[in-house]
Lab assay of single mutants.
Amino acid sequence: HEITLHINGRRVKLRFRDEKAAEILKEAAKKGLDEEELKKLAEELWR
């Protein structure tokens, strides 16, 4: 699955395995994680 989040006016595509991962990524984006941090988090969730 993929999700596209808008971060600092940019579109960031993240891959994720399940809905739980999608929710975690959305929450992290709301908390203000930047693009690099979100990509790292997405990679961690993928494993």
Rank of each mutant, 00 (worst) to 15 (best):
H1V: 09
H1A: 11
E2M: 11
I3L: 15
I3T: 02
I3E: 02
I3G: 02
T4M: 08
L5I: 13
L5Q: 01
L5E: 00
L5S: 01
L5K: 00
L5W: 01
L5Y: 02
H6M: 15
H6A: 08
H6Y: 14
I7R: 02
I7K: 02
G9I: 01
G9W: 00
G9R: 02
G9A: 03
R10Y: 04
R10G: 06
R10W: 03
R10P: 00
R11T: 15
R11L: 15
R11I: 15
R11G: 10
R11A: 15
V12S: 01
V12G: 00
V12F: 05
V12A: 01
K13Q: 10
K13D: 04
K13V: 15
K13E: 05
L14I: 06
L14A: 01
L14R: 00
R15N: 04
R15D: 01
R15Y: 10
F16V: 15
F16Y: 15
F16Q: 01
F16H: 07
F16A: 15
F16I: 15
F16R: 03
F16E: 00
R17I: 09
R17D: 02
R17N: 07
R17E: 03
R17K: 10
D18A: 04
D18I: 04
D18G: 11
E19F: 12
E19N: 12
E19H: 14
E19D: 11
E19R: 12
K20D: 08
K20G: 11
K20F: 11
K20T: 09
K20V: 10
A21C: 07
A21W: 03
A21I: 03
A22H: 07
A22D: 02
A22W: 09
E23H: 13
E23C: 07
E23S: 12
E23R: 10
E23T: 13
I24N: 04
I24S: 06
I24P: 01
I24L: 12
L25M: 05
L25T: 01
L25G: 02
L25N: 00
L25K: 00
L25C: 03
L25H: 00
K26F: 11
K26A: 07
K26S: 08
K26V: 12
K26R: 13
K26G: 05
K26T: 11
E27S: 12
E27C: 10
E27R: 10
A28H: 07
A28K: 05
A28L: 06
A29V: 10
A29T: 05
K30D: 11
K30P: 01
K30F: 12
K31D: 10
K31Y: 14
K31W: 11
K31S: 13
G32I: 05
G32V: 04
L33R: 06
L33W: 14
L33V: 11
L33I: 11
L33S: 09
L33A: 14
D34K: 10
D34R: 10
D34E: 11
D34T: 14
E35T: 09
E35V: 14
E35L: 12
E35Q: 06
E36K: 12
E36L: 12
E36Y: 13
E37A: 15
E37Q: 14
E37K: 12
E37S: 15
L38Q: 01
L38I: 13
L38S: 01
K39E: 07
K39Y: 15
K39F: 13
K39S: 08
K40T: 12
K40P: 01
L41H: 01
L41K: 03
L41Y: 04
L41P: 00
L41G: 00
A42H: 02
A42Q: 03
A42V: 04
A42Y: 04
A42K: 01
E43P: 00
E43M: 08
E43S: 07
E43K: 07
E43A: 09
E44F: 14
E44C: 09
E44M: 12
E44Q: 13
E44T: 11
E44G: 06
L45W: 03
L45V: 03
W46T: 02
W46S: 02
W46K: 01
R47H: 14
R47E: 11
